[in-house]
Design a protein around this nucleic acid. Structure first.
Length: 378
RNA sequence: GUGGGUGUGGCGUAGUUGGCUAACGCGUCGGAUUGUGGUUCCGAAGACCGUGGGUUCGAGUCCCAUCACCCACC
């Protein structure tokens, strides 16, 4: 399923195969929480933006329209007309970030819907059932994401429970895959490493979950408030403990330099709302840093967002036009900015892959890491 | 021409019987956002209160004049 093409230091250039095609790694997955990319992009836009994997969300789609509706419409692939790989997040993170009044038990988590406030119970089996009906190619384990910082004792107990939940997820998905009406029988489960900001807990946790011999391993619960150095330090401890022949997915990360630095430590998959959310707020990326299109400096700027960018937006429109669209609050502003930022991220990954293949990743990292996160004025 | 009303940052307003660095919304400018909050959060600049006098220890608040705009009536 995962083929390691070449390595350059700890950085890896690989290829991952799913029932809906292969993925060249390192890769950035484009987030479409509710089976749509916020900012008015559809599946065909995703193609034009260079997306390889689309990511949707169990929690949101369970609440609306409901997994049985999606299953009846041919699963996520048929529903949203995206015929390439899809990964679904388990809902674990949303339970802890969006929902209020949650009550965590061994069996699962009880919480209230952020839409209508009704009580919902989510268990490992429940999350797997939903993801099975959604028919994604990669289902994520239902885990507990602890906030940082958290007391060591709590993190230990939480990580143990997340392990037990992972075992239950694994059993449940096997059952759902063998069912006659399975939407995507080739769907696989990826495990998630937890352990807060404690490197030793994380290492022990990774050693345990790798015994399950899953086709992929994620590192969750990072970039949730801890200093960036702590995140890098944890990656340096955890990645060597993950099986070398399986992809590693750093959940929810991050900025361009976060991604480059994490690739340098052995990560293969990423996802992040940042490029899309920033785009909606007029923050767009260039090879020299990030700019805010709302700034008055761009009122009569004839240049595209990035002169070296080949995206639809940069090929057709000026910063001045986008500046106007944002000030006028036209929804086109978001669409054009999101198209650019996603294209930017996807082509950044392409550059990373090329650098690893050429065994020039260290030079690439030195040149780009800080530069891309920098804010650019005028 | 007569009577009445209103004039406070770019816009719309609040400012108690005159009392401390003139408040608020929008807008402007800038910043946040990491397994998605498109309607979120934070910060900043900006008014000598139409103009000129007067009363008072003290005036956006009271008095006089004047200008502008609005309404009604000849």
């Amino acid at each position: 399923m995962f083929e390691l093409i070449t390595t350059d230091g700890a950085a890896r250039r690989g290829r991952y195969t799913t029932p809906h095609g292969t993925v060249e790694t390192p890769v950035f997955m484009n987030v479409g929480t509710q089976a749509a990319i916020k900012g008015a992009l559809d599946a065909f836009d995703l193609e034009s933006v260079g997306c390889q994997v689309e990511l949707s969300n169990t929690y949101h789609l369970h609440l609306r329209p409901g997994e049985e509706t999606v299953a009846a419409m041919g699963g996520l692939h048929g529903f949203m007309r995206w015929h390439r790989p899809i990964l679904t997040d388990s809902g674990g993170f949303q339970v802890f970030s969006l929902a209020e009044l949650r009550n965590i038990r061994e069996e699962g988590v009880e919480f209230r819907s952020h839409i209508d406030g009704r009580r919902i119970f989510m268990s490992p089996e429940g999350s797997m059932r939903i993801q099975s009906r959604l028919g994604s190619d990669i289902a994520m384990a239902f885990d507990e994401c602890v906030e940082n910082p958290s007391p060591r004792e709590y993190v230990v107990r939480s990580a143990e429970r997340t392990y037990r939940w992972l075992v239950r997820c694994n059993t449940a998905l096997a059952d759902f895959n063998s069912a006659e009406d399975a939407v995507n029988p080739g769907q696989v489960l990826w495990g998630i490493n937890q352990g807060g900001a404690y490197a030793d807990i994380r290492v022990e946790h990774m050693k345990k979950i790798r015994e399950l011999d899953l086709p992929g391993y994620a590192i969750g619960g990072l970039a949730v408030g801890e200093p960036t150095e702590v995140m890098y330090d944890i990656l340096e401890h955890v990645c060597p403990e993950a099986p070398a022949d399986r992809p590693r997915y750093l959940m929810g990360v991050g900025t361009p330099s976060n991604i480059i630095e994490s690739v340098a430590r052995g990560v293969d998959f990423f996802d992040c709302v940042m490029p899309a959310r920033n785009a909606r707020h007029a923050h767009v990326y260039t090879l020299d840093g990030r700019i805010n299109l709302r700034n008055a400096a761009y009122e009569r700027d004839e240049r595209p967002i990035d002169e070296h960018c080949g995206c639809y937006t940069c090929r057709h429109f000026s910063r001045a036009y986008l500046h106007h669209l944002f000030k006028a609050e036209e929804m086109l502003s978001m669409r054009l900015a999101v198209i650019h930022n996603l294209y930017f991220y996807n082509s950044l990954m392409e550059r990373i892959r090329a650098a690893i293949e050429a065994h020039e990743f260290e030079a690439f990292r030195r040149e780009w890491s800080e530069r891309l996160d920098r804010r650019l004025y005028a």
